[in-house]
Simulated scan of single mutants.
Amino acid sequence: MVRVIAITLLFLLSSVAHAAQDPTAPLGWYSKKSSSVAKRKTAPLPKLQSIVCDDGSQCFAMLNDKILSNGQFVAGYKIKAITFEQVTLVRAGKTWNLEIFNSDIRQ
């Protein structure tokens, strides 16, 4: 009696495991299991809204609704340089140049 119950349970468990696979997948294909290594999430680039420069060529930029200057941080990115055309951001050894307008403007 115990043997019949054990065989029945094994049969039910094997059918559940089989149903967990994608029935439309090619034969012999198995999806990758998620790795135990945590993936680093990168912060999204700040949104550049405007650049204002005074006569002394000191420039300020509005990023994510904040007025910032060189050396300040926004959303985890350090502002390396601000020119009248672009803002240069640095994070983890990588550099991004944000521009107000796309350079490929067509008329």
Rank of each mutant, 00 (worst) to 15 (best):
M1I: 07
V2L: 02
I5V: 13
I5H: 08
A6E: 09
I7S: 11
I7T: 12
T8Q: 06
L9P: 00
L9I: 12
L10F: 14
F11G: 02
L12M: 06
L12W: 03
S14I: 00
A17F: 11
A17Y: 11
D22W: 05
D22R: 01
P23F: 06
P23E: 00
T24K: 04
T24V: 02
P26L: 00
L27K: 04
L27Y: 08
Y30E: 08
Y30L: 01
K32N: 01
K32R: 08
K33T: 04
K33F: 02
S34L: 07
S34Q: 05
S34F: 05
S35P: 00
S35G: 07
S36K: 10
V37P: 06
A38Q: 13
R40C: 04
K41S: 06
K41W: 07
K41V: 08
T42V: 15
T42A: 05
A43D: 10
P44G: 03
P44S: 09
L45G: 02
P46D: 06
K47L: 00
L48E: 01
L48W: 07
Q49P: 00
Q49A: 00
S50A: 14
C53R: 04
C53P: 14
D54A: 14
D54E: 10
D54Y: 07
Q58K: 03
Q58M: 12
F60I: 04
F60G: 09
A61G: 13
A61C: 01
M62L: 06
M62F: 11
M62R: 10
L63C: 08
N64F: 11
N64H: 11
D65C: 02
D65N: 14
D65A: 02
I67E: 10
I67S: 08
L68H: 05
L68Y: 03
S69K: 13
S69G: 08
G71Y: 04
G71R: 01
Q72I: 03
Q72Y: 11
A75H: 10
A75S: 15
G76P: 10
Y77W: 14
K78M: 10
K78E: 14
I79T: 04
I79P: 07
K80Q: 15
A81C: 01
A81F: 05
I82Y: 03
T83H: 11
T83Q: 05
E85Y: 03
E85L: 02
Q86M: 04
V87Q: 01
V87H: 05
V87D: 02
A92H: 12
G93W: 12
G93V: 12
T95Q: 12
W96I: 00
W96D: 12
N97T: 13
L98M: 12
E99K: 15
E99Y: 15
F101K: 08
F101M: 04
N102K: 09
S103P: 15
D104R: 03
D104E: 14
D104M: 07
D104P: 03
D104T: 12
I105E: 12
Q107V: 09
Q107N: 13
Q107A: 06
Q107S: 10
